[in-house]
């Protein structure tokens, strides 16, 4: 019989790829951020695999995507450990998606700063990194340093500002601090929305790569940015500065939790403990991926300057209560679409 060779090839490959797809070992599935994947592979995944004798598989993506998938798969979870920004994690925790953490299984728990020990205030998560949200600006275009959230409204910045979209992690803290800067009460964000509606914004970014590209292509001179994007921004070789704001930088933590229904709860704790250990926290900091939350991490000054490190720096940050964000988020998204983006 003369079966076409292509067809024959396809059918030979079929069982092969089936077999490959089904090959399974003890596997710990971690849902994490897509940033610096190569460093995370090097600093966390590979060393942990060597210790635990298991496979570590990463699902990567932004907070919203992964939370949505976690919610959708609630009845049949296929993730063991999930890493999320604090208020996304709080949302998941409220939906009962997390196990309670057993801190006795975390040998490095005692080394953590206080703010990292129970960031969701319900015992379901520990923080593994902290970062600030402030305004990044071009020092060559803006000669008078930016020192307040209100400076975004300076006339010379008209049309040269990008804002984080409300659905990003940096969106709500920006609304919150702008609201405070303009004298608004936390219970009512009208001051912020009134002002943001008047701001001459070039565009709203969804992703940290977008804000990098906007700076790289000279499209914007200033934008509120999360510290984790700072390394990428420096790569643009543009003269950029990180504003020290008198009315406050926002502080956010990324947290690690064990997914409810995980079949590897003990291993998941082990992984989280590993992430908090001094060597891993140091390695992540030296690669400028994550600022440490472990008090014993010692860093050279040059590295520490690029990160959010130490009690003194963290003390200056304003942490938003995660429940506060969640109560207001839907309303803020609606108001944002109607009053700001338009």
């Amino acid at each position: 019989m003369k079966t076409p060779r292509h067809v024959r090839l396809l059918f030979t490959l079929l069982p092969l790829s089936l077999a490959a797809a089904q090959a399974q070992k003890t596997t710990l599935v971690v849902s994490g951020f897509g940033i610096a994947q190569d460093k995370i592979e090097k600093n966390i995944a590979k060393p942990f695999e060597a210790v635990c004798g298991c496979n570590v598989v990463f699902e990567v993506g932004n907070n919203a995507d992964r939370l949505a998938k976690l919610t959708a798969r609630k009845a049949n979870p296929n993730v063991d450990v999930v890493l999320l920004a604090d208020y996304f994690a709080k949302q998941a925790s409220n939906q009962g998606l997390f196990e309670k953490l057993d801190t006795a299984q975390l040998s490095n728990y005692g080394k953590l700063y206080d703010f990292a020990r129970d960031p969701l205030k319900d015992g379901t998560a520990v923080a593994f990194t902290v970062y600030s949200v402030s305004i990044v600006y071009r020092t060559d275009k803006i000669t008078k340093p930016i020192t307040s959230w209100k400076d975004l409204w300076r006339p010379e910045l008209a049309g040269k500002v990008a804002l984080p979209n409300i659905t990003t992690t940096q969106g709500p803290p920006t609304v919150w601090l702008v609201n405070r800067a303009y004298g608004g009460k936390d219970s009512d964000a009208s001051a912020a929305f009134g002002q943001l509606g008047k701001l001459k914004v070039l565009t709203y970014y969804n992703q940290s790569s977008q804000v990098t590209s906007l700076f790289a292509q000279d499209e914007i001179w200033a934008a509120p940015v999360g510290r984790f994007a700072w390394g990428g921004l420096l790569n643009t070789k543009k003269p950029l500065a990180w504003a020290r704001l008198s009315d406050g930088q926002a502080g956010l933590v990324n947290v690690a939790s064990v997914v409810k229904g995980s079949k590897n709860v003990a291993l998941a704790h082990k992984f989280i403990d590993f992430m908090l250990s001094t060597p891993v926290q140091t390695a992540q900091a030296l690669d400028l991926v994550d600022s440490p939350v472990n008090k014993q991490v010692k860093l050279p000054a040059a590295v520490a300057n690029q990160l959010t490190v130490g009690v003194s720096q963290v003390a200056g940050l304003r942490f938003m209560d995660t429940s506060y964000v969640l109560t207001n988020r839907d309303n803020w998204i609606q108001r944002w679409n109607r009053e700001v983006v338009k």
Partner: peptide, 18 residues
């Protein structure tokens, strides 16, 4: 970007984000 939403991106936002 965020300003020029079409049905497809809105669908993704509704199902995948909110």
């Amino acid at each position: 970007g965020a300003r020029v939403q079409l049905l497809a991106t809105l669908l993704y936002q509704k199902a995948g984000v909110t």
